[in-house]
Structure formats: structure tokens, C-alpha cells
Simulated assay, not measured.
Amino acid sequence: MWFDRKNPNVLFADRRSETITVTDRSHGNASGTRTIHIAPDTLMDFRAMPFPDETFKLVAFDPPHLVQAGPKSWLAAKYGKLSDNWREDLNKGFAECFRVLEPHGVLVFKWNETQVKLREVLALTPHQPLFGNTSGKKAGTHWLVFMKGTTP
């Protein structure tokens, strides 16, 4: 998603920092494996961000979107997997994103609705997106843009 993760204006955060090798035979991958490097700038949980209120002008929220994935799934290894309490987790994640945004700050939200429909996720936040797009019925990825008001 990031064009330049080394940009000094970007802070990449994840709850994991690890290198994983998983089975992947897609796209003619001759080795049958794929190595994934997860190397965030900051280790954190999106449900409890370690930043003061109103820290950022822009937040990109790209939470895990899988609720079902096998123990050797490379998608789950790369992107993570939602917990059994995913509704509560995403509700807290949205609340944290808006908490750390300055007034009139922008939240860019990415969601793939392969397993959970976007409408179910949007029901977890009182905020309404300003606009967004989808990448088509087959891909199911949505990009939505929210703006924080002047009151929390």
C-alpha cells in the first residue's frame, strides 16, 4: 500500500515484527514458498495506540480482514487474522484512529470484504465516510476516506 515506506512523514505500525516463510505455489512460484518480512517502525496494537490525542493529520487504517484462515495461510501470515471478537476490535480501532487524528484530520480506511462485508464493518463506527472506491466485484477491496469533525 505504501509507495515509499522510508518517507520521513510515514510511520508504519504493526503488532508483529517477524520474518515468516510460508507455502506459496501461486503464480508459478517454483520454490513453493514465500518469505514475508514484517518490519514496522513501531510495535503497537491498533486498539490502543501509544500516541496522544490529536497527534496526526492523516491515518491509514488497514486492519486484518480474515476471520477464517488456515494455520499455514500466507495471507494470514502477511496480513494477520481477526480475533473471535473482531467486531469489538474494529470498533476500538476506529475509535483510536479518530482519537489520534487532529480536528479535520483524514482517515483512509482499506477493507477487503472477502469474508466480512463492508456494511458490517461500517456499522461498527458512528462516523460516515466522505467518499471511496472499490476495485471491482472480484477483488472486493474498498478504500474509504473519512474526515474527523471539530469535536471528538
Score class of each variant (00 low, 15 high):
Gly28Arg: 11
His104Cys: 14
Thr19Pro: 00
Val22Tyr: 03
Asp24Gln: 05
Trp2Gln: 11
Glu120Asp: 11
Met147Trp: 10
Trp111Ala: 11
Thr141Asn: 14
Met44Pro: 05
Ala76Pro: 12
Met1Thr: 00
Thr23Asn: 06
Glu18Val: 13
Met44Glu: 00
Cys97Ser: 11
Phe51Leu: 01
Gly140His: 07
Arg25Phe: 15
Arg34Tyr: 04
Thr151Arg: 13
Glu96Trp: 00
Ala48Lys: 14
Asp14His: 03
Leu90Glu: 04
Leu90Asn: 07
Phe98Glu: 01
Ser26His: 07
Arg47Gly: 01
Pro129Phe: 12
Phe51Glu: 01
Val59Gly: 10
Gly80Glu: 05
Ser83Ile: 00
Lys138Leu: 12
Pro50Glu: 04
Gln115Glu: 14
Asn85Trp: 15
Phe94Lys: 10
Phe109Tyr: 05
Lys92Met: 12
Thr23Met: 13
Ile36Phe: 05
Leu11Trp: 02
Cys97Asp: 08
Phe98Arg: 05
Gln128Met: 12
Ala76Gly: 05
Trp74Ile: 15
Thr55Met: 12
Trp74Cys: 05
Leu82Ile: 10
Trp2Met: 13
Pro52Thr: 00
Asn85Pro: 06
Lys81Met: 03
Gln68Cys: 14
Pro52Gln: 08
Leu130Val: 04
Lys72Gln: 10
Thr19Met: 06
Ala39Asp: 13
Thr134Glu: 02
Leu90Val: 11
Ala139Lys: 14
Asn9Cys: 06
Lys92Asp: 08
Leu107Trp: 02
Asp24Trp: 04
Asp84Glu: 15
Ser31Phe: 05
Leu90Gln: 10
Val145Gly: 11
Leu144Trp: 04
Ala77Val: 03
Gln68Glu: 14
Ser26Arg: 12
His142Lys: 04
Arg34Leu: 15
Ala48Ile: 06
Ile36Glu: 06
Glu113Met: 06
His142Glu: 08
Glu54Lys: 12
Thr141Met: 13
Gly136Thr: 10
Ile36Pro: 05
Asn9Thr: 14
Gly136Lys: 00
Thr33Asp: 10
Ser135Lys: 15
Ala123His: 01
Asn133Cys: 13
Gly132Cys: 09
Thr19Asn: 03
Leu82Met: 13
Val67Asn: 09
Gly80Ile: 02
Val22Trp: 05
Val145Tyr: 04
Thr35Glu: 06
Lys92Cys: 06
Pro129Ala: 05
Asn29Tyr: 00
Ala13Ile: 09
Val59Asp: 12
Ala39Lys: 09
Leu107Tyr: 10
Glu96Ser: 11
Trp111Pro: 01
Glu102Thr: 02
Asp89Pro: 01
Phe131Val: 04
His65Tyr: 15
Trp74Glu: 08
Phe46Met: 11
Thr134Ser: 12
Trp2Glu: 14
Gly132Arg: 02
Val59Gln: 08
Val22Gln: 03
Asp41His: 09
Met44Tyr: 08
